[in-house]
Simulated scan of single mutants.
Amino acid sequence: MYIVPTPIGNLEDITHRSIHVLKQVDYIIAESIKHTSILLKHFSIVNKLLPLNIINEKQKTKKYIHMLNQGNNLAIVSKAGTPIINDPGYLLVKNAYKNNIRVVPLPGACAAITALSASGLQANQFCYEGFLPKKKILCEKKIYSLFREKRTIITYESSKRLLNTIKIIKKVMGKERKITIAKEVTKRWENIQSGTIEQIFNIIKHDETWRKGEITIVIDGAKREKKNILSLKTLKIFNLLKKETTLTTAIKITAKICGFSKNILYNTIVTKNIS
């Protein structure tokens, strides 16, 4: 079974090997038959297409494993980019190994890696978080969980939610954190912007073109903090207030008295359980 990446925009990004494999296999498993048909037609590839999506993945996996066991060679492609990453196919690969079926991955296009390479942020260590949650409260919770992540963070976001998401990142991580946003990577309307969260927010809030297209967000990892950033005086004030009011109110008042950002204070006190 071959895992075959396809272009994320520019059709010239497909490899010669990918074209050869798609021509030679017995069947091509596609996340979107309509989308893949356009690609095959462009490269004059004639082959049979089989569906695999989130809804039918479990059912179809059994069928395709049976076909592989019978000696058929299959290739799996996603709508765009490298299959399995945020796309159907995980179960197929997992079960292929269980059935001693050889899995052959081909290198190719991937929006996350492409955006990372152009981000200007450290790329020797990074974490990929996929799509951020759609609901604001869950998105905020996710960003809070990444506040102390020291590796560069890569995530995807809908262009419709981009502005609100950048607001959340700014609120949680502070306006000076470095960030890169990449829109429609490799396509005609490609746009990559890098700077502080404050700078990026000001760019996109006045530019309607960022309300369309596919977005990759790359966030600089957290810097190592100095030990004992909170003084004993700060902790004492917080603990006294916590006894008299809610945690949130105690943090807000302590932040005002001591001149800390309430978000930094929250992450330092709550995530480390300092008290």
Rank of each mutant, 00 (worst) to 15 (best):
L121M: 12
K41I: 00
P5T: 07
G108P: 01
R17K: 13
I19S: 00
K171C: 11
P51K: 06
L162S: 10
T216H: 01
R102D: 05
K223M: 14
E198A: 14
Q199T: 12
P5I: 02
L162A: 11
N164Q: 15
P5N: 06
I197E: 13
T15F: 03
K48M: 06
I253W: 08
V270R: 08
K227M: 13
Y144M: 13
K170L: 10
L116M: 15
F131T: 09
T82Y: 04
I179Q: 06
V104Q: 07
Q24C: 00
A255R: 12
Y156W: 08
P7C: 08
R224E: 15
S158G: 04
G71A: 09
K262F: 07
C258F: 01
N202Q: 10
K175G: 00
E244I: 15
F260Q: 03
K227S: 14
I84R: 06
A111D: 04
Y97H: 12
A255P: 13
V4Q: 00
N202H: 11
I29H: 01
S275W: 07
P107V: 07
K223E: 15
T268D: 05
L49D: 11
V185A: 05
I200D: 02
E31N: 09
W189R: 12
C258K: 15
I219E: 05
T249Y: 09
I219C: 05
E214M: 06
T152Q: 03
T254V: 13
Y27S: 02
K160Q: 11
E129C: 07
H42F: 12
F260G: 04
I19L: 03
L235I: 14
E57M: 07
I257M: 13
N99R: 06
N73I: 09
K227T: 12
W189H: 14
I179E: 05
L40H: 10
S78T: 09
N95C: 00
F43A: 09
Y2Q: 06
K63G: 00
T234K: 04
N191W: 10
S231T: 15
K160R: 14
I14R: 06
H16D: 00
T268S: 07
T82W: 01
S275A: 06
K34V: 04
K60R: 15
S194E: 03
Y64N: 04
L235S: 08
V93R: 06
Y144D: 15
E225Y: 09
K79G: 08
S37K: 13
E12L: 10
I76V: 05
T196F: 05
R17A: 02
E184G: 07
E140N: 15
S194I: 04
E214D: 10
V21N: 01
T268K: 12
N191P: 01
I217S: 03
P7E: 12
K233E: 12
R102A: 04
I143L: 13
N239K: 14
E12Q: 13
V172P: 01
I45Q: 10
R211F: 03
V218D: 01
K134T: 12
D220I: 05
K63F: 03
E129F: 07
K98P: 00
P7M: 11
N164K: 15
L68C: 02
Q122T: 13
R188C: 03
L91I: 06
V104Y: 07
I19T: 01
C139Y: 07
